[in-house]
Write a protein that binds this DNA or RNA. Structure first.
Length: 136
RNA sequence: AAAGCAAAUCAGCUGUCGCUGUUUCAAUUUAUUGGAAGAGAGGAAAGUCUGGGCAGUGCAGAGCACCGUGCUUCCUAACAGGAAGGAUGACAAUUUAAAGAUUGACGUACAGAAAGUGCCACAGAAAGGAAAACUACUCCCCGCAGUGACGGAGAGAAAAGGUGAAAAGGUGAGGUAAGAGCUCACCGUGUAAUUGGUGACAAUUACUGCAAGGUAAACCUUACGGACUGAAAGAUCAUGUAAACUGGGGUUUGUCUGUCAGCCGAAAGGUGUGAAGGCAUGUAGGGCGGCUCGCUCAACUCAGAGGGUAGAUCGAUUGAUCCCAGGAGUGAUUUUGGGACUAGAGAAAUGACAGCUAUUUAAUUCGCUUCGGUGAACUAAAGAUACAGAACCCGGCUUAUGAUUUGCUUUUACU
């Protein structure tokens, strides 16, 4: 199926990012930390994401570029896990993904890790919905 | 073969999946979907150290302060950049009795120290005062159990020793009690003239002298130059409202004009109440990079218009551009002709994976060998890797860097 990962998946709105960090719902799977939240987005895609490598750890610009490219690549390959779930449920989320390791890791390792992260995230989202129903 | 310098290039191909612009085709739901073609990081994109373009703010002008630069001529849009030249420094070689001279590659923040102020530690007798006598030197006088390589007092003397980064021109000769630019020769240094050079400066000649140092990346003086901010600059559009913006009226005092209205007069004219205009002037306030002189604005009111919102578009890539050829110039550079369009993102694209080719390392075999190595074949492993990612654009400087290719120079080996 579709593996494209274009501009529409990119989260740029400062307001949305502020909203994410107010809520502070996170899922951890080394070497990633994902902060997420449900919100209505100005796009037809089911999620938008910020991909980040901290400047504190990676001083050189080309190192940061390398990490972000790897993260974007594995995200693109594995995003269907998340996207299929969200499409089925007809929900939209915003996501802020941070790389926390101090060194570059191999592509195949990262591919497995992101898969684990997505499955965790999906189960968390299921729980959230149950809680919402109870409240309602 | 090695080293140095200069220049060029940052691999390519195939497959799968993607990213950002551009052009284009098709479909429909008319703003979306799908497809095709072609483009997509650097020599430093870095440091943000400099010079400009561009933009905004400010600006009558002058002085001071502040900052920068500092041999000459040239190049350039400009420069703290570059080219050519001059001077100078220590080093090496040659030469000389020595001082010095010549050559070479390298370095120089290379204006002024008789405008003034400050500083020059330690050592040393003396370190800036036309200075200084410690040892040793010379002369003269005195003393003595001692007649000395003795002791004391005076004078001369900066040549010798010692200290120091530096001791007051150097070397040789004369001279002298001993010495001293005291005198002479050569050299150095200062001043002046002449000649050569666009000039920095050089050469020659003459002369007074040689007691009067260094430090200005210490203050300072002098010549020249310099507004400040920075693309998150700034412009336009959508929404429809501020204290910022634009326009009108109003805004100190005096005096003049006699244009308009008013008043007096039959009129000529007068008056100077209001309006208008000209000139002069005062005070408190705002503005003019930090200060001074000086200049300039108007408080209030009415109307127009608009702010925020990391929104969209422009700014933004056709330019002091790049490539090739010819001409000018020692060169930096410039000029003529022809050709090219070569990233334009926006929390920031240019990628990931797999395979092959180059190459590197190791082992084996064969050839050559000065026995150090070296060339070829084959096998295995690694396998495009250094420094590093455009953020408005150019010129430079500095720093970081692995390879491959080409040219020049030097050294070594062989012919």
């Amino acid at each position: 199926m579709n593996q494209t990962f274009g501009k529409e998946y990119k989260l740029c709105s400062k307001k949305t990012i502020e909203f994410l960090f107010e809520k502070k719902k996170t899922v951890k799977q080394f070497p990633f930390i994902a902060t997420y939240g449900e919100i209505e987005l100005p796009t037809k895609k089911s999620f938008q994401v910020v991909i980040s490598a901290p400047k504190r750890i990676f001083r050189k610009a080309h190192d940061r570029n390398r990490i972000k490219r790897l993260m974007r690549e594995v995200f693109r390959k594995k995003k269907l896990i998340l996207e299929d779930f969200l499409l089925a449920e007809k929900r939209q989320i915003a996501l802020f993904l941070v790389y926390t390791n101090k060194e570059e890791m191999k592509y195949t390792v990262l591919e497995n890790k992101i898969e684990l992260l997505f499955t965790k995230l999906v189960s968390e989202l299921r729980k959230d919905k149950k809680i919402d129903k109870i409240v309602l």
